[in-house]
């Protein structure tokens, strides 16, 4: 049973109520034809007799009226009344009540957690905190009352969704490493790459090829291999790509139009370049981890500024800069 304490009840007694700022578009007219669902017992617009309608209210209202006459405190009409309270007053109803409620009234089934008030729950929570080794004065929060395992901390962490539980960069690179749909092999390669980054000596960055601003110092990178990988990829990721619009330049030539890239797109391009460079390398050893080793070496080369990937990035950016005049091209022609 929900607790009887109704927080909204307080505002009901106020004379000023907040009016909805947006008027509802529903017609305010009452339906002429009465609608009755299959599960409804009576017709809503049934003809009323002299004793029906406008007389006594429902049981709680009746009890409230009676108590007003007798001067006792009756049920609070601003709240719903639990059926147990009604049955306390109603002897006849008690006999006709369902078995479960009868048992509850007899005390056969005493379920404290179900049929208790908020005050009781509060003190139960205090007792629990004492049992857990705290004090009775400790604040009883919502997640300690009525929840077996407590509520999760909000906001939920980003990796709480099982589809996004891994680091986004690692997940993306793993998928890009995959060949022939063999995800498990790709994951093994990814693990090898991260462990290689962890054991390789710290990189010596080239000042001519600055890393991403805000990147951690190079001697911090090996113990944070995911950060290492992210710094390498984000540092060489291009900001744009060049789209070739055919027939727009006239004379059959393609018009070069720079197009900005999103974060994942930028990373994807960088990883593709790194993988291309790694594929061109030769293995120095033998065994099944050679490809992963070459990729890991290429990532180190990127951070040290030795990789050819930097030149590719520079080329794309240069072309993008020179072709920026073409930005206002639209399929119909140049925009003025």
């Amino acid at each position: 049973m929900p607790s009887r304490l109704n927080l909204l009840g307080a505002s009901r007694s106020l004379t000023i109520r907040v009016r909805p700022s947006i008027a509802s578009h529903h017609a305010r007219t009452l339906p002429v034809v009465s609608r009755r669902g299959f599960a409804e017992e009576k017709e809503q617009n049934a003809p009323t007799g002299p004793n029906q309608g406008g007389g006594l209210g429902h049981v709680s209202e009746e009890a409230a009226d009676m108590s007003e006459i007798t001067g006792e405190t009756g049920p609070d009409l601003s709240q719903g009344t639990p059926v147990q309270d009604i049955l306390q007053r109603d002897e006849e109803g008690r006999d006709k009540a369902p078995e479960i409620i009868k048992q509850e009234i007899d005390g056969k089934k005493a379920n404290a957690a179900e049929s208790t008030t908020f005050a009781n729950l509060l003190s139960l929570g205090q007792l629990e905190s004492i049992a857990a080794g705290g004090h009775g004065t400790d604040p009883v929060t919502v997640d300690t009352v009525g929840h077996k395992y407590g509520l999760p901390d909000l906001p939920l962490p980003k990796n709480a969704n099982f589809k996004y539980r891994y680091d986004p960069v690692v997940a993306q690179v793993t998928n890009l490493l995959m060949k022939d749909g063999k995800l498990s092999v790709a994951q093994r390669n990814m693990s090898f790459i991260l462990n290689h980054l962890r054991t390789a000596p710290p990189p010596v960055p080239n000042p001519a090829r600055p890393l991403l601003p805000g990147a951690p110092p190079p001697n911090h990178l090996p113990l944070n291999p995911i950060g290492y990988l992210t710094v390498a990829i984000d540092s060489v990721a291009p900001l744009l790509r060049i789209r070739s619009q055919r027939g727009a330049a006239g004379g059959g030539a393609a018009l070069q139009i720079p197009v900005p890239l999103g974060l994942r797109q930028r990373r994807r391009q960088a990883v593709q370049w790194i993988l291309d460079a790694a594929n061109k390398k030769k293995s120095r050893g033998s065994g099944k981890n050679q490809f992963a080793l070459r990729v890991a070496d290429e990532i180190i080369n990127v951070v040290e500024g030795k990789s050819s990937v930097w030149e590719k990035r520079q080329l794309v950016h240069k072309t993008g800069t020179s072709a920026r005049a073409n930005l206002n091209y639209r399929p119909g022609g140049f925009r003025r």
């Binding site: 070739s244 059959g252 030539a253 393609a254 070069q256 080329l315 072309t319 020179s322």
Partner: peptide, 13 residues
């Protein structure tokens, strides 16, 4: 189609 048009800067890697 692949002929280079004079004065056109194209990206070729």
């Amino acid at each position: 189609k692949n002929e280079k048009v004079k004065g056109q800067k194209t990206l070729r890697i």
